[in-house]
Design a protein around this nucleic acid. Sequence first.
DNA 1: GCCGTTTTCGGCCCGACTGTTTTCAGTCG
Length: 584
Amino acid sequence: MSALTKDQIADLLESIAQMLELKGENVFKIRAYTNAARAIETYSGDLAKAAGENRLAEISGVGKAIADKLTELIVTGHLMYYENLKAEFPPGIFEMFDLQGIGPKKIKALWEKLNVTTIAELEKACKDGRVAALSGFGKKTSDNILAAIQSRAKHAGRFRLGEIAKDAERMLEELRGLPDVLQACVAGSYRRNKEVVGDLDFIVATNSPAEVSEFFVKHEMVESVIANGATKSSVRLKSGIQADLRVIKNTEFPFALNYFTGSKEHNIIMRQRALARGWTLNEYRLGPLENSKSEPPPPIHEERDLYRALGLDYVEPELREDRGEFAAAEKHTLPDLIEKENLRGTFHNHTTASDGRNTLAEMVEAAQELGLQYLGIADHSKASFQAHGLDADRLLAQVAEIRELNKTFGGDFKIFAGSEVDITKEGALDFPDEVLAQLDYCVVSVHNVFNLTEAEMTKRIIKAIENPYVTMLGHLTGRLLLSREAYQVDHAAVIEAAAATGTIIELNANPRRLDMDWRWWPLAKEKGVKCAINPDAHSTSHLQYLHFGIGIARKGWLTRADVVNTLPLGKIEAVLQAKRNAKK
DNA sequence: GCCGTTTTCGGCCCGACTGTTTTCAGTCG
């Protein structure tokens, strides 16, 4: 059998935590398993190796007991403790954890008292009144459970950032426009630029909380009101996403903004750092601990002051994931993250020649309007027949057309002629080298045969990027967020090969892809692999996707220097040629 | 179950809202 991935191991630990919750175990023991799952997920070393050398307990958050269990799991592929625990519960019961408003205690009561073990049975029990009659429950709880079941069926509770950005920005703008609003911001995973978000968190500083809350819950985008208290309101928007509003005083704004931006893991460490200094931190203030003899904390006017007070450089929201930002902020080695304004051009864009909706001329005009200096055209190759892929004749005709068009720009704009070349199942390319040699650059991508083993897929991609004419690798994993799983591929091995061959890796900025994932960019950067942020635009409006790509690049700790399309005309050409020149 | 400038026991981040119950448990973030 193939080795377990870190994510699979982390999932198993999470699953243990969930089962311990159902058993009503000590909450700190449960947290220990959750923490360990988190530690495994973010561990940068080789787990199998660490297990072999008996070093798992060296990982912070993994002690002796969990280290022993992990060793058993890694060595044998099984964990008796987990198997035994799992046998105690009906298999369908875990899906009930997905429902908003019920947790382990209620799930346990439903199971023990009503013998409800699946969501389908739960729905029935709500409808025939058995849930409402249960002690500790009631009519409202029963109704809320039914609503949660329907909501889950409809939305699954997760949304791509790119698709709810419009709602978020509109609500924010209108909140900021209210006369009583002093400051407003969207916090949460939206502010951290996560690729997928579960809800929207609006933070508003005001002296008129009731008026602001009323505006929020009665907004025309709102479908239903979930909660409406003095400081917190929750609604479901018509788009399906849940939105929360926190109203606070102006002096509390930096604390609320920081707290609700998260991540939860980041917050815990912030609070621990406050405690270590004799202070307590919450969403309203940084204050002295009771009976503490420490100096009182300094005044805080904005988030930056808070980080300084805790001995840290300012941490950009995208980096607040407890993935090394605290160590870097202490040592003043946080990266100077790339900004939207740094982009000078982009590659991987389609036209009507393959499956794009706009012509070459229209795409050029749109790129110029965005202030870009250059635009790379990479239409599909012939193997992607479903996308009207170009054969060599059509491609070379397009190259000639681009060369002619370039003469009209007088040097202040340039189209680069490229192609998005299919990688065959065997790792060969869809065009021979003689054709590729006539292009300015070439993107290679996998578009079919997704079901290879990880080893086969990795070999396929590495073989493709070993070709000296391949400038960059397109959407590494082929994932479509929330709709299609990534195919199996060894990221670290591909990054290694990209470093060895001088191949650029694309950060596909289409909000459905955002691929390569942000979690892998720090490794790519460490290995010296460059990034190209590409919108994979199939229409002029898709060029706007670059914005989402910047967010993910920032999340991946990338600076201007790590991203090739920040280079101006005059410098970018040499980068596109570097790999094929090196092989000559 | 983890961890240690409070160091091998005793704490572990902290507050808001809802619903059911009548002073608080459960859930969420």
